[in-house]
Computed example of a mutant assay.
Amino acid sequence: MEPSVNVIGTKLQTCSGNPLTGFYRNGCCDTGPEDQGSHTVCVVVTAEFLAMSKYLGNDLSTPRPEFRFAGLKPGDRWCLCAGRFMQAAQEFAAPQVVLEATHARALDIIPLELLRTHAVVNPQD
C-alpha cells in the first residue's frame, strides 16, 4: 500500500492518537472503499460544532464506553466525514481543519479553498 497523501500534496500526517480517530482507528484520516462516509477531514472540534452535530443526530460528545469512545470535547482532533464538514460550513459551524492531516480524497467533496479558509494557523498547537 502506498503512503496516503494530504490535501497539500505531501505525506498524510497523524490527526489524533488521543482520542484515537480515523475510519481505521489508526490515528490518521486514511480512507478506502469501505469508508462510505469519507472520514477524511482532520478537524479541531469546537463546542459549536459538537452542538450542531448532536442536533443533527450524530452525538460526538457523549461517552459511549461500549464502543470504547470517551466522547469528544472542544479542542480534540477528529477525522470528520467530508459531507458533514460541508454541512457545518453551510451552517457557519465548521471547525478548524488541519490540512497536513486531511486526506486528499476530501477534495472529491470539499474545495481546497474552503478547507484553507478553515485551516489551523499552527497545526502543532
Score class of each variant (00 low, 15 high):
1 M>D: 08
1 M>K: 08
1 M>S: 07
1 M>N: 00
1 M>F: 07
2 E>V: 11
2 E>K: 12
2 E>W: 09
6 N>E: 07
7 V>M: 09
8 I>V: 13
9 G>A: 01
11 K>P: 04
11 K>H: 12
11 K>M: 12
14 T>S: 13
14 T>E: 15
14 T>H: 05
15 C>V: 04
15 C>F: 06
16 S>P: 03
17 G>Q: 08
17 G>C: 00
18 N>M: 11
18 N>C: 06
19 P>A: 07
19 P>F: 07
20 L>W: 09
20 L>T: 04
21 T>D: 04
21 T>G: 06
22 G>A: 08
23 F>I: 03
23 F>C: 06
27 G>K: 05
27 G>A: 03
28 C>G: 04
29 C>K: 03
30 D>W: 02
32 G>F: 04
33 P>R: 10
34 E>Y: 12
35 D>A: 03
35 D>T: 00
36 Q>R: 13
36 Q>S: 14
37 G>K: 12
39 H>I: 04
39 H>T: 09
39 H>F: 12
40 T>M: 10
40 T>A: 15
41 V>P: 02
41 V>D: 00
41 V>A: 02
41 V>Y: 03
43 V>W: 05
43 V>P: 02
45 V>W: 01
45 V>Y: 00
47 A>F: 07
47 A>M: 07
50 L>Y: 06
50 L>V: 07
51 A>L: 08
51 A>D: 11
52 M>A: 11
53 S>M: 13
53 S>G: 04
53 S>P: 01
56 L>G: 01
56 L>W: 12
56 L>C: 06
58 N>F: 10
59 D>K: 06
59 D>H: 01
59 D>R: 01
60 L>Q: 04
60 L>W: 14
60 L>E: 01
62 T>P: 07
64 R>P: 02
64 R>C: 08
66 E>M: 11
66 E>Q: 14
66 E>S: 13
67 F>I: 08
67 F>S: 14
67 F>E: 15
68 R>D: 15
68 R>Y: 13
69 F>M: 03
69 F>L: 02
70 A>Q: 14
71 G>P: 00
74 P>C: 04
74 P>Y: 05
75 G>S: 11
78 W>L: 08
78 W>M: 06
79 C>R: 09
80 L>S: 02
81 C>W: 03
82 A>W: 01
83 G>S: 15
83 G>K: 07
84 R>T: 11
84 R>I: 05
85 F>E: 02
86 M>K: 14
89 A>N: 07
90 Q>P: 02
91 E>H: 09
92 F>T: 10
93 A>E: 10
95 P>T: 06
95 P>C: 06
95 P>M: 02
96 Q>L: 13
97 V>Y: 03
97 V>P: 00
98 V>W: 02
99 L>K: 01
100 E>G: 14
100 E>Q: 15
100 E>M: 10
100 E>R: 12
101 A>N: 00
101 A>D: 00
101 A>E: 01
102 T>Y: 00
102 T>F: 02
103 H>R: 06
104 A>S: 12
105 R>T: 15
106 A>R: 03
106 A>I: 05
106 A>M: 03
107 L>Q: 04
108 D>N: 13
108 D>G: 05
110 I>V: 15
111 P>N: 09
112 L>H: 08
112 L>W: 10
117 T>A: 14
117 T>H: 14
117 T>P: 00
117 T>Y: 10
118 H>G: 09
118 H>R: 15
122 N>K: 10
122 N>A: 11
123 P>R: 01
123 P>E: 00
